[in-house]
Simulated assay, not measured.
Amino acid sequence: MLIYAHRGASANYPELTLAAYEGAVAQGADGFECDVRLTKDEVAVLWHNASMLERAGNPGLIAEMTYKEVSRAYPQILTLDEFLAFAVKNKKGVLIETKHPVISGNRIEEVVVENLHATKGIEKIDVSVMSFSWFAIEKMKRLDPSIPTTFLMHKNSQWFQAKLSSATSIGPGINELREEPIRAMRIKKLGKSLNVWTVDDAADIKLCEKVGVDILITNMPSHAREVLRYP
């Protein structure tokens, strides 16, 4: 089971920053997870919420601000280009979540594909583009079917969406997997791999190992490695 750092080693560092991903490397993570949004001038940046209020104290919306305005409000912000270059340099896999719904619609998938194609050495690391949007995953297939995808599921997601998805992986939340461990077997029977988020509790980490999770997404990579007794 591989261990991917959720927004970097975000239990110890500001999420989605270079410091968080450097921390993830130090903690032995096999890969990184990130959230991606588009600025007004179509720069893909690592950011979770639509607004900058919670992290930067700025009420502006990422989609309504230029990259210059966003970086002025939060100098630590990473572009997708910078993130991918760092991952390639450190030989770490990446899970890239596109956020929806957004003002720009499915334009974010187009920009992500453009960024991936432009990243030197990207073929040397594992990549998966993720989304809770079924339509975003299908858009990725049309844009470039060679790029692996992960259909993310929350408690209200319908099973038929996973069953009909073109995604190579399914990503249920740990709460749902804990309540219904048989989900892991059902996903495997679809011929898809299993990426589970966000797993920090020791009992949940052991559950993921038991049911055959492929990628465990955690805020604390070093803790997960310790629980699993990885060297």
Rank of each mutant, 00 (worst) to 15 (best):
M1N: 03
S10A: 13
S10W: 05
S10L: 10
A11C: 07
N12W: 15
T17H: 11
T17R: 07
A19Q: 11
A20S: 06
Q27L: 05
D30H: 14
G31Y: 06
G31A: 09
D35Q: 05
K40W: 04
A44G: 10
V45H: 00
V45Y: 00
L46P: 12
S51R: 10
P59S: 09
M65D: 07
Y67I: 07
A73S: 14
Y74H: 09
T79Y: 06
T79L: 07
D81V: 12
V88L: 02
K91T: 05
K91F: 01
K92W: 00
K92G: 01
G93D: 09
V94L: 00
L95R: 09
L95N: 13
I96D: 01
K99G: 01
K99T: 00
I108Q: 05
E109F: 06
L116R: 05
H117C: 09
K120V: 14
K120N: 12
G121W: 00
E123F: 05
K124Y: 04
K124R: 15
S128W: 00
M130V: 13
M140H: 12
K141E: 08
P145F: 04
S146Y: 06
T149L: 07
H154K: 07
N156K: 13
F160D: 12
Q161L: 15
A162N: 02
S165W: 01
T168A: 10
P181L: 03
P181D: 02
I182T: 15
A184M: 02
K189E: 14
V196Q: 10
T198H: 07
T198K: 03
A202H: 01
A202F: 03
D204Q: 02
I205N: 09
K210F: 12
N219D: 15
M220H: 05
P221V: 10
H223I: 09
H223Y: 11
R229T: 08
